[in-house]
């Protein structure tokens, strides 16, 4: 059984760590430095553990040596060729050698090669649908009403929607024109379009900023909940004889 006093100790330690890191908001002090180094140490220690316990054991070792049958589970043969990955990984350590550091490029190259190939594979899966959904109708199919009514006819395109779609398309094209790097033009229209493009991007950025604020504030609120409700109200006060 877990000791009864353990949860409150754990909470207390957690609160201390939180306060320690928050102290950097005031300024960098020895207090913060202590917690920062502890944080880095713990993270490195965890990485050393997770390296085997969370990654290599299950994705590499177990597949290499297989597993014997036990109750209800059939035996899985080991695939010896996995062993080849270890020497390849070791090659990366040659980066510290002055003479043979090029050998480190082989594992690096394999990682980069796999990534590069995947780019080719996923490019259209990712951007095809986005291209398709940008092809919005530009002619209204009905003139019965100008503004989209509250109960629109299914599948109909109203003039007001078309205006929205035109704005969409213009925004997309002018923002894209901002990212053309190899064209030099004196055309006022084109230059005006890129300036517009940049401004329109700012609208997007502002909106992202605004909606990100929610997450950031929520996470801070959650920490305050952790410190003041979970630790003080629910942990400490009952302990020292409060309600």
């Amino acid at each position: 059984m877990q000791s009864e006093s353990y949860p409150i100790i754990k909470l207390f330690v957690g609160v201390a760590c939180t306060v320690g890191l928050y102290s950097v908001l005031y300024r960098e002090t020895k207090f913060y430095r202590f917690f920062e180094h502890m944080f880095l140490g713990l993270a490195a220690g965890w990485a050393m553990f997770a390296l085997w316990g969370e990654t290599l054991k299950s994705t590499w070792w177990d597949r290499m040596v297989g597993s014997v049958a036990d109750e209800g589970n059939p035996a899985v043969p080991g695939y010896w060729a996995w062993a080849l990955l270890l020497p390849i990984g070791v090659m990366a350590y040659f980066v510290v050698s002055k003479k043979h550091n090029w050998i480190s490029r082989i594992p690096i190259g394999i990682i980069l090669g796999l990534w590069s190939g995947q780019q080719v594979q996923v490019w259209f899966t990712r951007y095809g649908p986005q291209m398709q959904s940008s092809m919005k109708p530009l002619f209204p199919t009905t003139w019965s009403e100008f503004i989209t009514p509250l109960q629109p006819e299914a599948g109909a395109v109203y003039p007001a929607q078309v205006i929205g779609n035109l704005i969409f398309l213009l925004t997309l094209l002018s923002a894209m024109s901002y990212f053309l790097f190899s064209f030099e033009t004196k055309s006022k229209l084109f230059n005006g379009m890129t300036t517009w493009g940049r401004w329109l991007l700012m609208i997007g950025f502002g909106a992202i900023f605004g909606s990100t604020v929610m997450t950031r504030f929520t996470l801070m609120i959650d920490r305050m909940y952790f410190v003041f409700i979970e630790f003080f109200q629910q942990g400490l006060i009952p302990l020292i004889g409060g309600r």
Binding site: P129, Q130, Q132, S133, S211, M214, T218
Partner: peptide
């Protein structure tokens, strides 16, 4: 909430059927 705008992009193109943000 951070991922919201990007996910809405996929929501609009129908790649995500429904999404709760933040």
């Amino acid at each position: 909430g951070v991922m919201g705008p990007e996910t809405l992009n996929y929501y609009q193109s129908g790649q995500v059927k429904g999404v709760a943000i933040g």
